[in-house]
Write a protein that binds this DNA or RNA. Structure first.
Length: 255
DNA sequence: ATGGCTTAGGTGCTAAGA
């Protein structure tokens, strides 16, 4: 089962690119972030025409997550239980025996911003939820836009980014604590090109100069990781006309 | 140099992203 995650930065703007990408990458499951689309305006018909079942949790202007799948989508749940959050950032479903948690982690804006404290608290709540889900579903993946570069090798210029949001110590510690639940970053289980990133700034020719960060991750439980035989970032759509600033990340699980 | 683009909302600009 080939699964992927992609922050599309507005689903309605990116529908043509998504359609083109799915035509040559007919993944079984696709987790989308930043749909920026209320549920009542979600383009169900267009995505069904591409051969996918769809579930979505969205809102106007910001955030929003969705899961597309070729097989039936079961046991759908929105948000983190017992964590009140107006922002639509989490969507769970089971597809073909694989439990999927699609996450759009808060950006945090800056270390002295209240949004950074929200990010850290949100990650703590996510961790408790993932611990619970992993206990119930040995075959679990937690994938999406983490807005955290796990290590310095995931940052084009670690010196320039040192101490900034997306790489700061406290948020990396939160990510480490997710790994400590038994999850692994499946991208790093395989040989990868040097300077691999999943996001590049729209400004200053960030993509052309490969000034990027690897912040879109596929995490898997130990049992799911054992079934994973490949993972890569598809940079191609980042070079298309009117691209998302993120590239899709794909992984195959033999389930 | 904290900018540089891109999106949404709304119609001239601001907020937000990463």
């Amino acid at each position: 089962m080939l699964i992927a995650t992609w922050n599309v930065n507005s689903l309605r703007v990116r529908l043509p690119q998504l359609s083109t990408w799915l035509a040559s990458n007919p993944v079984d499951v696709l987790a989308l972030q930043e749909t920026k689309c209320p549920d009542e305006e979600f383009p169900h018909t267009e995505l069904q025409a591409l051969g996918y079942q769809v579930v979505a949790s969205g809102q106007k202007s910001y955030n929003g997550v969705a899961i597309l799948a070729r097989q039936p989508i079961e046991a759908v749940a929105c948000g983190i239980p017992d964590y009140l959050d107006e922002q639509k950032r989490v969507l769970c479903a089971t597809v073909g025996g694989l439990r999927v948690i699609n996450v759009y982690v808060p950006n945090g804006q800056a270390l002295d911003s209240p949004k950074y404290q929200y990010k850290l608290g949100w990650l703590q709540a996510l961790r408790a939820f993932v611990r619970d889900q992993a206990a119930q579903h040995p075959h679990l993946v937690v994938l999406g836009d983490y807005n955290i570069a796990p290590e310095d090798r995931d940052v084009h210029d670690p010196q320039a980014w040192e101490g900034q949001v997306l790489v700061s110590e406290a948020e990396r510690l939160e990510l480490t604590q997710l790994f400590d639940l038994g999850l692994s970053d499946v991208y790093r289980r395989f040989a990868q090109p040097e300077r691999s990133y999943s996001w590049w700034d729209y400004r200053m020719m960030g993509f052309r100069r490969n000034h990027g960060l690897r912040i879109d991750l596929i995490l898997a439980t130990q049992q799911a990781t054992q079934l994973c035989d490949s993972c890569h970032i598809d940079k191609e759509p980042r070079a298309w006309e009117r691209p998302s600033d993120h590239a899709p990340v794909l992984a195959n699980f033999n389930i």
